[in-house]
């Protein structure tokens, strides 16, 4: 039972259309009409609540376009100014991801039902994980700025908690899906719990763990870029400044550099995963 998902939802391989459904009777439309009506009512109530109207949306669309036009061409000369803070952002992401991943290992083992046999242990562990994951990273950052003061430390702390929630959830799901064969064999020859984990569980999930680590790192680089908005270090500080000055060309440059770095990380993790899997 995992009520909260953090990864893209399970892809539905092999489920295409109604293959295998023998009944050719026309499905009743009542249910879909009811669902549609329910959604429309919800949307209408939401629009009422937030004073958003369709006409506003139509008038807002050109505003979107205007912003996009102002962003181009990006201010290339700004690159020299943003390079150092951008590297700080990457450093924050490296530390946050690694420390979060280290913390995630024990709790993921605790949360998987096939390692921790006792319900009294793994259900509270999962509950804790779900609670950690309900809080967005920027909120963590705002709280840690209140605790640690302005600076990169608060950002790293926020990223640690965020990565911890993400990786432990992904990891415990992989641990639950491992092949029980080696585990049974080890129990049969009398391995203790630690040996059992070391030689039965860890070899089966290492590759996945590394791919989750890289995925989280990528997410964190994107996230670390905005932590500066609440004063938690990194490139976000400059981003707020240029947005305040309405220098969208410079903001675009910052975003483009983030995109390049993310693409590089993407490429590296693709190559690493090719080697591993």
């Amino acid at each position: 039972m995992s009520p909260i998902s953090v990864t893209p939802p399970p892809t539905n391989e092999g489920r295409s259309g109604d293959e295998g459904a023998p009944s050719m009777a026309k499905p009743s439309h009542t249910k879909s009409i009811m669902t549609a009506a329910f959604i429309i009512v919800l949307l209408w109530l939401s629009a009422e609540r937030t004073d958003a109207t369709l006409t506003q949306l139509v008038t807002g669309a050109p505003e979107m376009g205007k912003l996009l036009v102002e962003m181009f061409p990006p201010d290339w000369s700004y690159l020299t100014t943003i390079w150092a803070p951008m590297m700080e952002t990457v450093q924050m992401a490296v530390l946050g991801t690694s420390i979060g991943a280290l913390l995630a290992i024990p709790i993921a083992l605790l949360a998987s039902g096939n390692v921790t046999r006792s319900k009294w242990l793994y259900i509270p562990a999962r509950l804790l994980l779900n609670l950690v994951r309900t809080v967005p990273d920027l909120l963590f950052a705002a709280i840690f700025v209140a605790i640690f003061g302005l600076g990169a430390v608060a950002g790293v702390a926020a990223l640690i908690l965020f990565s911890f929630g993400l990786i432990s959830k992904l990891l415990y799901e992989s641990i639950e899906a491992i092949d029980p064969g080696p585990l049974e064999a080890m129990t049969a020859v009398g391995a203790n719990k630690l040996q059992w984990i070391r030689f039965g569980v860890i070899p089966q999930v290492t590759a996945q763990f590394i791919s989750y680590l890289l995925y989280t790192f990528e997410v964190n680089v994107r996230a670390a870029g905005v932590l500066g908005l609440v004063g938690a270090g990194g490139i976000g500080l400059l981003l707020t400044r240029v947005l305040d000055q309405l220098r969208y060309d410079r903001a675009c440059m910052i975003i483009l550099l983030t995109l390049v770095i993310v693409l590089v990380i993407d490429y590296i993790s693709y190559r690493v995963q090719e080697k591993l899997l």
């Binding site: 807002g60 205007k66 994107r222 870029g225 947005l243 309405l246 969208y248 903001a251 983030t258 993310v262």
Partner: peptide, 16 residues
């Protein structure tokens, strides 16, 4: 995707 929603929000606050 790389454009964080919070940055977009700042820009839209300027616009609307």
């Amino acid at each position: 995707r790389t454009f964080p929603e919070i940055v977009m929000a700042i820009m839209f606050i300027k616009a609307v």
